[in-house]
Measured scan of single mutants.
Amino acid sequence: SADYSSLTVVQLKDLLTKRNLSVGGLKNELVQRLIKDDEESKGE
């Protein structure tokens, strides 16, 4: 998976916004949300 932890919070929020995901929470939560979304989209 992508190394989201190396991105800035601003970059993470931009990715979340593009996916229509919540941008609330700490950086670690944003990273986990993106990883979870990646895993769910692979399952389709």
Rank of each mutant, 00 (worst) to 15 (best):
K42T: 09
S22P: 15
S6Q: 12
A2N: 12
L34D: 02
E40Q: 13
N28A: 14
Y4P: 01
E29K: 05
L16Q: 01
D3E: 09
L21Y: 01
K18R: 10
V9R: 05
S41Q: 14
G24E: 15
T8E: 05
V10K: 15
D14N: 10
K13R: 15
Q11T: 05
G25T: 02
D14I: 14
G25A: 03
D38Q: 04
G24W: 12
T17G: 08
S22W: 08
E39W: 11
A2R: 14
L30G: 00
V23C: 07
L26M: 11
S41K: 15
D14A: 14
K36H: 10
S5A: 13
D38L: 05
D14T: 10
G24V: 15
S22T: 07
V31H: 02
G24N: 15
L26V: 10
L15A: 05
L30N: 00
G24K: 15
L34F: 01
L16T: 01
V31C: 05
K27D: 03
Q32I: 08
Q11C: 06
D37R: 04
K13W: 07
S6V: 09
Y4K: 00
V31I: 15
T8D: 07
K27V: 06
N20K: 10
G25P: 02
K36D: 14
E29D: 12
K18A: 10
K27C: 05
G25Y: 02
I35S: 06
V9W: 06
E39F: 09
L26E: 15
L12F: 00
R33D: 02
S6T: 11
K36I: 08
L15F: 04
Y4F: 03
V31P: 02
K42W: 09
E44D: 12
S41L: 10
N20W: 05
E44T: 13
V23W: 06
Q32Y: 07
T17M: 13
V10G: 12
D37F: 13
S5N: 14
L26T: 15
V23S: 09
E39V: 09
V9D: 06
S6I: 10
S41T: 12
K13C: 07
K18W: 06
G43V: 12
K42N: 11
E39Y: 10
L21Q: 04
I35A: 06
D38R: 04
L26K: 14
I35T: 08
D14G: 08
E40W: 09
Q32C: 10
L21G: 01
D3I: 10
V9A: 05
L15C: 06
L21T: 02
E39A: 11
Y4W: 03
D3F: 15
D37H: 12
I35Q: 10
R19I: 03
Q32N: 13
K18F: 08
N20R: 08
K18H: 08
G25D: 01
V31G: 00
L7K: 04
S1L: 13
T17K: 15
V23G: 06
S5T: 11
L7I: 02
A2H: 13
E44F: 14
S22G: 08
V23A: 09
S22R: 07
K27W: 08
L16K: 00
T17R: 15
E39K: 10
R19W: 03
D3V: 09
G25N: 02
G43E: 11
V9P: 05
R19T: 02
E29A: 07
E29H: 06
V9Q: 05
L30A: 01
I35P: 02
I35N: 06
L21A: 02
E44Y: 13
V9L: 12
T17W: 09
R33W: 04
V31D: 01
Y4T: 00
V9K: 06
G43D: 10
G25K: 01
D3Y: 15
N28H: 15
K13L: 08
E39G: 07
D38N: 04
K27Q: 06
L26A: 13
Y4I: 01
V10R: 14
E40V: 10
K27N: 03
K27F: 08
L15N: 02
L34S: 00
L7E: 01
Q11S: 05
D14E: 15
L34K: 00
T8S: 11
S22A: 11
E39Q: 12
K42C: 06
S1R: 14
V10N: 14
E40S: 12
L7F: 08
S22Q: 08
A2Y: 14
K42G: 10
L7Q: 04
E39T: 08
D3G: 10
S41W: 10
L12S: 00
D3K: 13
T8C: 06
E44K: 14
V9F: 07
S22C: 07
D38G: 04
L12P: 00
K13F: 05
K36W: 09
L15V: 05
E40K: 13
K42V: 10
